[in-house]
């Protein structure tokens, strides 16, 4: 097991190094000079040169990369020129907002996707299977941006049952004392119920949008895993032994389906941390997605690099955790 974990850690480090090089090169070969945007309309060549110097853009690329690596080792990802703040501090402030979205949408997606996927897979080809599969296909094919706008239109503009899509809390509502940074959790822990309700009301639309898209892969995997598992010898044996359907589902099916779902839930969660850019943009959700969106529009190199690195790091860590859990659940993996 130790060798397995060591191998996975090594692979993770190599992956992150690869990402580092790629991100650095890609962002530096994007067209345009961010120093010109930052220096402004009145800037003369001297001011532009000073700005390039301040942003470190006047140094040779290998030197910039070396500085960049050294900075990362010290958790210094540079300063965003959009916000004037260190990127690490920007990401730290915004990450809880994105995590809150990812967490709640994944919980909603799992609570809906797994039961319906299993329910559908137990009777493949039946009417309920056709309906559930249809919903999964529909969910997969929905463009996130379009879905977000529809949700916004229905719940905010027409029904008027949710607060304005302008952040995590209503104007002038004070955030709860920071414990996790997730307002919904922190407000419960501190017993601040009016803030909790406000936070939940603000979460409703973005969580719904993300959950609809997220449910589809979970539902599909749960369904196909159920079909596969239900055809195995041990299920047939369990039935022959006279175990009830519920016992079979609880003791044999869900455990085996869970192994496969572990991967998909992990991947979806990782995707949400990076893929929430569009949803955050639509609902003005002040997370790392909106931060990345604004950074990309203005060639805010340090911010873009920081965002990609954070997502890559999260993805790598999630994959590592899933691999290790997988190995625990299924011993065949660690010896493969």
């Amino acid at each position: 097991m130790e060798r397995f974990i060591a191998r996975r850690v090594g692979l993770g480090v190599v992956t992150l190094l690869g990402v580092l090089v790629l991100v650095f090169l890609l962002t530096h070969y994007l067209p345009g000079n961010p120093a010109l945007v930052k220096a402004g309309s009145y800037a003369d060549p001297r001011a532009i040169a000073a700005m390039e110097h301040q942003m470190g853009l006047d140094r040779p690329l290998p030197v910039q990369f070396q500085d960049y690596l050294a900075g990362i080792m010290r958790l210094n990802l540079g300063t965003s020129f959009n916000t004037g703040q260190p990127v690490v501090s920007d990401l730290r402030v915004r990450l809880p907002a994105t995590m809150e979205l990812a967490l709640w949408s994944t919980i909603v997606a799992v609570l809906i996707g797994i039961p319906f996927g299993v329910w559908s897979g137990l009777r493949p080809g039946s009417a309920r299977d056709v309906v559930v599969s249809g919903v999964a296909i529909f969910g997969t094919s929905l463009p996130l941006f379009w879905l977000g706008l529809i949700v916004l239109f229905i719940f905010y503009a027409v029904l008027k049952v949710v607060p304005a899509p302008d952040g995590r809390l209503s104007p002038f509502v004070t955030p709860p004392t920071t414990l996790t940074g997730l307002y919904s959790i922190d407000s419960i822990v501190t017993g601040n119920w009016s803030t909790f309700f406000d936070a939940v009301a603000h979460l409703f639309m973005p969580v719904l949008t993300l959950a609809v898209v997220e449910i589809a892969p979970i539902l599909k995997i749960a369904r196909s895993a159920t079909i596969d598992v239900m055809q195995t010898d041990y299920i047939r044996t369990a039935r022959a032994l006279g175990l009830s359907e519920w016992q079979i589902i609880r003791q044999d099916l869900l455990r085996n389906v869970g192994v496969r779902l572990l991967t998909v839930v992990g991947i979806v969660l990782g995707y949400l941390l990076g893929g929430s850019v569009l949803v955050e943009r639509i609902f003005n959700w002040p997370g790392i997605g909106l931060y990345a969106w604004n950074a990309m529009l203005s060639n805010d190199l340090a911010a873009v690099q920081g965002f990609i690195l954070l997502v890559a790091f999260t993805y790598t860590v999630l994959n590592f955790v899933i691999d290790v859990l997988y190995a625990f659940v299924d011993p065949r993996i660690r010896y493969a």
Binding site: K160, P171, F172, V173, W193, D198
Partner: peptide, 27 residues
């Protein structure tokens, strides 16, 4: 106490009518 804090928030202009209605309904 939640209702009174909500009404106070609305009275002081800290929350909008929409937010008030949504939260009061949740209560």
């Amino acid at each position: 106490s939640e209702i009174s804090s909500l009404t106070r928030a609305l009275t002081e202009g800290r929350i909008t009518r929409r937010t008030f209605i949504g939260q009061a309904a949740l209560l």
